[in-house]
């Protein structure tokens, strides 16, 4: 079947339900729009949550997964507390984003996504977040010149943090780490396995 023919057939909805944590809630949306209106970042999205949910039901797989909308969620939970159907909208947004990312369909130049990837890599390496490296990584993400410019702009804050003992330049070399790094990595691996198995089970 071509794209037209699968409209409003549940293929994509089922895919989402199977692959996204809390995805089974999407069908419960009644299109009141309170989430869309409640989002502080709403004006910057192409598709607010309620519309995304409708698009998922309508089978618009490409448009949804390639959208940068769900990446805009800042987890303020306004939508969640107001939703009359008690949908865990924040979790669903992150879920869709993660799924799009896993499929390699997430938009390439997307600051939230970039930061998320950076953060994940940073914290899973040693089990602790290395703030200095995370910051620098973020600053230099757009190239050397851009990184220097950003660093220069933030220099006073950086110095302040150093004086207060909140920033240690030596972190650049080693930084603090988890004691049982092997354990952490084993845990993360196990979690990934469980996630896979869960998807397999619900599929």
């Amino acid at each position: 079947m071509n794209e037209l023919n699968i409209k409003y057939h549940n293929n994509f909805l089922k895919e989402v339900e199977e692959n996204i944590e809390e995805g089974e809630w999407i069908k419960m949306c009644m299109q009141c729009g309170v989430c869309s209106g409640s989002c502080p970042l709403g004006p910057y999205w192409a598709h607010p949550p309620q519309e995304l949910f409708m698009m998922i039901r309508a089978g618009k797989r490409e448009q949804v997964l390639r959208s940068d909308s769900m990446w805009m969620c800042t987890s303020c939970y306004n939508c969640v507390v107001r939703c009359p159907r008690k949908l865990p909208i924040t979790q669903i947004m992150h879920g869709i984003a993660a799924y799009a990312n896993n499929l390699g369909m997430a938009p390439k130049i997307q600051p939230t996504r970039d930061f998320s990837i950076l953060f994940w890599k940073n914290c899973t390496r040693t089990g602790r977040v290395n703030e200095l490296r995370l910051t620098l990584g973020l600053y230099f993400n757009d190239g050397l010149v851009a990184g220097i410019k950003k660093g220069w702009a933030m220099r006073n804050i950086g110095l302040g943090l150093m004086r207060a003992g909140r920033l240690n330049l030596f972190e650049l070399f080693k930084g603090h780490e988890c004691k049982d790094q092997k354990g952490i990595h084993a845990m993360l691996k196990k979690a990934a396995e469980i996630e896979q198995r869960h998807k397999h089970l619900t599929a």
Binding site: H9, K27, M28, M30
Partner: peptide, 30 residues
């Protein structure tokens, strides 16, 4: 696949629970 195409969904009173139950079973409303 079941799709209900409506302009105003009218399930007054506790019918709202029946509507929810339909959604919960995967009936799509548009």
């Amino acid at each position: 696949d079941t799709v209900v195409i409506y302009t105003d969904l009218r399930t007054p009173g506790m019918g709202e629970d029946f509507y929810r139950s339909g959604q919960n079973r995967g009936v799509t409303f548009t």
